[in-house]
Design a protein around this nucleic acid. Structure first.
Lengths: 151, 151
DNA sequence: ATATATATATCGTGACACGATATATATATG
DNA sequence: CATATATATATCGTGTCACGATATATATAT
């Protein structure tokens, strides 16, 4: 009988994390490919998603988008520049605070985003079990580590 | 009473996807910061993770790493170049097939990776509920969409 | 024996995220 | 109310890195 890798321990945690990241990359790869096929740079897709997907009450500014995308303000400005140039969204000065730029997705942007979102829902639905499985395995490791810690 | 956003429909799917991606970025941001603080470029961390986290039986080559990281071969070669130069892993010709390079994480690499893995397990454990919640919401959308489709 | 396939490596290019800095507007404080 | 400070966005130069195109070495097929 072959050596059986342990279910718990530092090595198996690393294997579990590796599996989780691999699944995550697979999803990201799907997402990037889908965006490119739809004529968007992956980051443009993410920008549209966060602008269109903001809660009703939220004022969608550059700063808001930057926070949601995990980017610095200046990187977001550039991303918005490119996206505006391609007619995916509009930027208008906020009348209440003229420093701020309010972002809105155009009809063109919305059409592309809608199609992409359906594709993503389907893909996530397929990938979900593997992601959940990996997450569950990690949580088990963490529970054990915490109980060892507590001794 | 204010307008209440619908629980289902294209807009709420987009909001749900936006939330999911936001949580995912948060995790990625944590991961990247942790890697940098540990003295690794984020991609070097991912490389070490996939090399160290490969199943026992697997021969870990450039091609294997490329597939696990979702990169092209040449990008992976460059990533390995940098990592090898910094003493994080070694590259040795496979005696069975001299075209292939076998990758191994060094002790130095393993130490850093071990520390990072513990941090990641803890963080994922905290983020898991939000990720699961978002995934579950997406699956619900998809179930509804599929049933509408089937009419 | 030679053609084809596979694995890795090299090189030039481009996208993009960032730090540093600038500008405009808003808010706080004496 | 004047000025200092904070906030929001914009500009510019720089470096990293992933990629396509291409090259080289070794393995496999015919």
């Amino acid at each position: 009988m072959n050596y059986q890798s342990p279910v718990v321990g530092p090595d198996s945690l690393i294997r579990t994390l590796a599996e989780f990241r691999f699944e995550m990359r697979r999803f990201l790869h799907f997402s990037e490919s889908a965006a490119l096929e739809a004529g968007l740079q992956p980051q443009q897709h993410q920008l549209l998603l966060q602008v269109a997907g903001a809660p009703e009450a939220t004022t969608v500014t550059i700063a808001y988008a930057a926070e949601r995308l995990g980017l610095k303000h200046n990187s977001t400005v550039e991303l918005v520049d490119r996206s505006e140039r391609e007619g995916l969204l509009t930027r208008a000065a906020d009348p209440d605070d003229k420093r701020r730029a309010i972002l809105k997705v155009t009809q063109k942007g919305n059409q592309i985003l809608g199609r992409l979102s359906g594709d993503h829902a389907r893909e996530l639905n397929e990938l979900a079990p593997l992601l959940l499985q990996a997450l569950e395995a990690i949580r088990m490791h963490e529970r054990i580590a915490a109980s060892v810690e507590a001794r």
